[in-house]
Design a binder for these strands. Structure first.
Length: 594
DNA sequence: GCCGTTTTCGGCCCGACTGTTTTCAGTCG
């Protein structure tokens, strides 16, 4: 049983307990669910290796929950949940995912109208039955219909790259309003989560209601979900929910902190405040009625005895302890990137010429760029064979002779065949400056076979970088089933670099894998996977954010180094690109059979 | 049900808004 499923069971229990008005237990189960969900190892493994005792070592898991986890892992079921479910057989997860519906509402809907599923709910609403229930009315019915429609179309979340420009546009519109002193983007957008459920904006202004009024009448707004004097929620035409909060300047830092989250980071901060006999809310940090801090986030963290925690780390994943002990990493900054190691050109499926790509990379301030067109295994792109690759290398040499201020590296995105072999011979690979390897087919292999396949390819001494290591496309395609711990261990052992592909719908590695790689001392590179000149901006726009969420410093990211140092750090420690045809000679070897 | 810089009992984050309830519960962030 996977962690998400275990967490799901605990969330169900929390909801059932909430329905019965049981005090405190619901929060305990929810907290545990969050801990389980974000735990970086399958609990089934933790249990296998360390038994119930190891489970109890997880914060939020005590004796009772460890028992339930043990039961779930062993039998796939939890008697208590089954009991509740028998009494009230409702689809809790999907029903409570609907805006405005919580456990209490689920209970009433089931008891009065026998609503068990989202479909039941929709039918009941359309029949006008819901309005007759206590605490419900016609307006609640309308809200539910809208929420149901939204859930169907988007699944409730949108990729960051879709949301970010919209949010920045709205922030700019608010900043132009009279009386607005300051606007900040908060929430998961500020934390740069890869998908966004709703966006949060914070405004400093004296008169809140005027700002709120202007906000709800912005042209992008399709529907007003709520509107008060200092707080409002709207739904945009594209389906994105945006929440606005207006605060006075002396509360800006506290509100930004509160509104940035994550929720569990906030809870941890507030608990820390309580321990110091203080109170933290969105207006400030208080001792009694006296405000000790609130104007900036920095002073709040400082007053709590913490180093400033960058928004990308605020997930309650150890950052508070690190901030207390001065162990927070110095996160990589966008400007630190000096090179791009994955780009495609019109030699295969890219839109632009090698020269155009090189010139744009230079314009962006990069020092080097690898051209990595596809290889023959990817037939539909017109992928290169050895002959075409040799021809391209010669052209790149010419390009380097012609262009100044940018170094073009000879590379390829080499296909990993089903059995883990590469589709270009070793001699040709050895002549390249940068060899990226990637899976583009047979995505559905069983976990063990997929892992073996990739590990084998990584063991090729010419394979420098594993491109988009999990193959996922955000909200389009699941990652293939691969043991990332094994991939990271192999990377460490063989010196293969892992790529963080910054193409916005990939962001592959994802944050937790970046963190694991960093912890294991495995270097990463942040690449654009550009298929046109305009894609070359992706690493600094999105890739660095993702790396920061994985606690990466500039030192963890190999393409923050100058070209020569970068090449020297690749497998085999090669030197300069030009005139180095033999630089791999000593590495030339038969692809090992594994 | 969990947990401990107010420890093994007695606490548990905090506040705004909505709807329909005329005094507040539920939900959300």
């Amino acid at each position: 049983m996977r962690n998400v499923e275990l967490a799901r069971c605990f969330r169900d229990l929390a909801a059932y307990l909430e329905m019965e008005d049981v005090p405190f237990k619901p929060r305990a189960y929810e907290k545990a669910a969050l801990a389980i969900e974000s735990y970086d190892r399958p609990l089934a493994e933790v249990y296998r290796d360390g038994g119930a005792k190891a489970l109890r070592a997880i914060p939020g898991i005590g004796a009772s929950m460890a028992d339930k986890l043990e039961e779930l892992i062993k039998t796939g079921k939890c008697a208590l949940r089954e009991q509740y479910h028998a009494r009230m057989p409702v689809e809790l997860a999907t029903l409570t995912a609907i805006e405005g519906i919580g456990p209490k509402a689920v209970k009433v809907l089931y008891e009065k109208l026998a609503v068990r599923t989202v479909e039941d709910l929709e039918a009941a609403v359309r029949a006008g039955k819901v309005r007759s229930l206590p605490h419900f009315g016609e307006r609640s019915e309308q809200k539910m219909l809208k929420a149901l429609a939204f859930l169907r179309t988007t699944g409730g979340r949108q990729p960051l790259a879709v949301t970010l420009p919209i949010v920045e546009q709205i922030a700019a519109a608010l900043a132009r309003l009279p009386g607005v002193e300051r606007v900040a983007v908060a929430g998961s957008v500020r934390r740069r989560k890869e998908t966004i459920g709703d966006a949060d904006l914070l405004v400093v202004a004296r008169k809140g209601d005027a700002v709120v009024q202007a906000f709800v009448t912005l042209p992008q707004v399709e529907r007003v979900l709520g509107q008060g004097r200092t707080k409002s929620s709207v739904k945009l035409a594209g389906g994105l929910q945006v929440d606005l909060r207006v605060v006075p300047a002396e509360s800006f830092g506290a509100a930004l902190c509160y509104f940035t989250g994550s929720k569990s980071h906030n809870v941890a901060l507030r608990q820390l405040a309580i321990k110091q006999r203080l109170k933290l809310n969105e207006y400030g940090l208080f001792r009694g009625a006296r405000r000790l801090a609130g104007r900036t986030e920095e002073e709040i963290y400082a007053r709590l005895g913490l180093a400033y925690v960058p928004p990308e780390l605020r997930e309650d994943q150890g950052e508070i302890e690190a901030a207390r002990s001065g162990a927070l990493p110095q996160l990589i900054e966008p400007g630190a990137l000096r090179g791009d190691l994955q780009t495609q050109t019109d030699w295969t499926d890219g839109a632009d010429s090698m020269e155009a790509m090189a010139r744009e990379a230079k314009r962006l301030g990069l020092e080097y760029i690898a051209i990595t067109d596809h290889t023959q295994g990817l037939t539909m792109t017109g992928g290169s064979d050895e002959t075409k690759l040799r021809k391209q290398m010669a052209e790149i040499d010419g390009l380097n002779a012609r262009l100044g201020g940018i170094r073009v590296l000879r590379g390829a995105e080499v296909n990993i065949d089903k059995d883990g072999m590469l589709d270009i011979d070793d001699e040709t690979l050895a002549a390249l400056d940068v060899v990226g390897i990637a899976v583009h087919s047979h995505f559905d292999l069983p976990r063990a076979e997929m892992t073996r396949r990739i590990v084998r390819a990584m063991r090729n001494p010419n394979a420098d970088i594993l491109f988009h290591p999990t193959g996922r496309k955000i909200q389009k395609r699941e990652a293939y089933d691969v043991d990332m711990d094994a991939i990271i261990a192999t990377a460490r052992e063989t010196g293969t670099v892992l790529e963080l592909d910054a193409y916005p719908d990939r962001l592959d590695l994802k944050d937790e894998h970046v963190r694991k790689a960093v912890q294991a001392g495995v270097p990463i590179v942040i690449d654009s996977d550009a298929h046109s000149v305009k894609h070359l901006a992706f690493p600094r726009q999105y890739g660095v954010d993702q790396a920061r969420r994985g606690w990466a410093t500039a030192a963890d990211v190999l393409n923050t180094r100058p070209g020569d140092a970068f090449l020297a750090a690749l497998k085999g420690g090669r030197q300069a690109a030009a005139g180095s045809r033999n630089r791999r000679a000593r590495n030339r070897a038969r692809t090992p059979r594994s």
